[in-house]
Design a protein around this nucleic acid. Structure first.
Lengths: 249, 249
DNA sequence: CGAAACTTTGAAAAGGATCAAACTTTGTGG
DNA sequence: CCACAAAGTTTGATCCTTTTCAAAGTTTCG
């Protein structure tokens, strides 16, 4: 157990600031939380379905995902989590995990015990509200994915996801201009989009051929934001950000 | 504005009790809430996408749904809400609705202002926790739908939904043995399942032909719970009920 | 009783899934 | 730093579940 190194809890603060106003006292209370930092390699379970975790985990660095395995072995990824997210905040209220949480890339994670989390929420109701709000935004993102999977074409869904990740990463300062790291294989994208690898691959080919994006060795560049947004029917309001996303020229 | 008639707020209490323990003081606090009861006919918007509601609504009687309309006019239903549910509890934290809420059948709804809701949550932290928990279960249900839409066949999804509704309705006492009212058209089921009406119709035909269910004039009977659960790969744990569902013989 | 809303059926088309195999990139150990 | 194996991407061809379109039955309800 160690005290938060500044750059570590900083991630959570930056994230919370992107969705809600945080006072200095609240910030101090967060920084004072005892956390345990753990480094995991890629494709490790953070919490498995059926477990009863005793702490919540904050993603400091890396990508994680929420998933469920079907009886036939196929997988559905239900969310991607980026630095600043607390993917299992829900375990504070729902004791048994109804899905798994895993790293997608090597990750640095900060664990905060439920006990400390409860204490923080009681002492600082603004933080409790912010966290509740965070879980609600998480659902909103899930609903948007549901619409995509249920009603949008392979192309539209894929474009939508690329837009969403750009905006979310930008909100926590992880984009470079119109470019960002997308450390996901096409199989993982497919599992998230409800598509086969082949389908994902073909859509990406098309988007590249139309000079809408560039994607190689894990880096995406949005060459034509307008076109990508249109292709993905993307409207960021469901992300409930405090300030609208920006797209430099 | 009127005081809660007993049978009205009772719905919320029964629902909360099904997912969490409620003390007598908590119950009294809920019953003391000022509510406005409104009766809506079928297919009316309760709140539209883009609105900023000033109150939350509790479903007392009838079915409601959460939906979004796509640019091409198609609709995706993202949740069904039954008596006891508070479908827009999230508006307490997310000011602008990112989706619409509509009645599916005639509904009797109780509106509680955000102001009163906040007051209740502040005075009674157990209720605040129960409500947060309720929104989390709502997300869990959404995730399960996502899995269905993304990875399960038309047949499996449909069967899953029939199981889910049975269990949820049973938890609030709205089933009669292995039978319940399903006041939804096949088009609505399709919009929820991400299927065309035709596909829904064919699945229902099959389930009937195999004597797994009976469905006519809005009443479903689960003739063979085992078979339906298997067909739908149904495991109720994601509903996080306090007590497991029961299936009489 | 009749119109409107639903359900049902048939036939054809399409979007993706699946299968298989070649090609590239990445990361590791020698 | 190279060589290789493993992982990931790409391409082609075929199959299949669902969608779409169309039209005929049925209910429901005013």
């Amino acid at each position: 157990m160690q005290k938060a190194a500044l750059p570590d809890s900083q991630a959570m603060i930056r994230k919370l600031r992107s969705i809600v106003d945080i006072s200095d006292e609240d910030e101090a209370a967060i920084l004072a939380l005892p956390i345990t930092v753990r480094q995991l390699s890629a494709d490790q379970d953070i919490v498995a379905e059926g477990e009863r975790p005793g702490s919540c985990c904050l993603v400091i660095e890396g990508f994680a995902c929420r998933y469920k395995i079907l009886p036939d072995g196929r997988r559905q990824i239900m969310a991607f989590h980026i630095p600043g997210d607390i993917p299992d905040l829900q375990s504070l209220h729902l004791k048994v995990m109804d899905h798994g949480l895993a790293t997608t890339t090597p990750c640095r994670l900060a664990f905060i015990t439920h006990h400390d989390m409860w204490g923080l929420c009681e002492r600082r109701s603004a933080i409790a509200a912010a966290m509740w709000r965070e879980t609600l935004i998480d659902s909103a993102v899930g609903r948007e994915w549901m619409i995509g999977i249920g009603r949008r074409s392979a192309r539209t869904r894929t474009a939508h996801l690329l837009c969403e990740l750009f905006v979310r990463l930008q909100a926590v300062g992880l984009t470079r201009g119109r470019e960002y790291d997308l450390p996901l294989t096409q199989t993982e994208l497919g599992d998230a989009l409800g598509l086969s690898v082949v389908a994902v691959n073909r859509v990406l080919q098309d988007l590249r051929a139309e000079s809408i994006i560039t994607l190689k060795s894990g880096t995406v560049t949005l060459l034509d934001w307008e076109a990508l947004g249109a292709a993905g029917q993307f409207d960021p309001s469901y992300l409930h950000l405090k300030r609208p996303p920006e797209f430099g020229t």
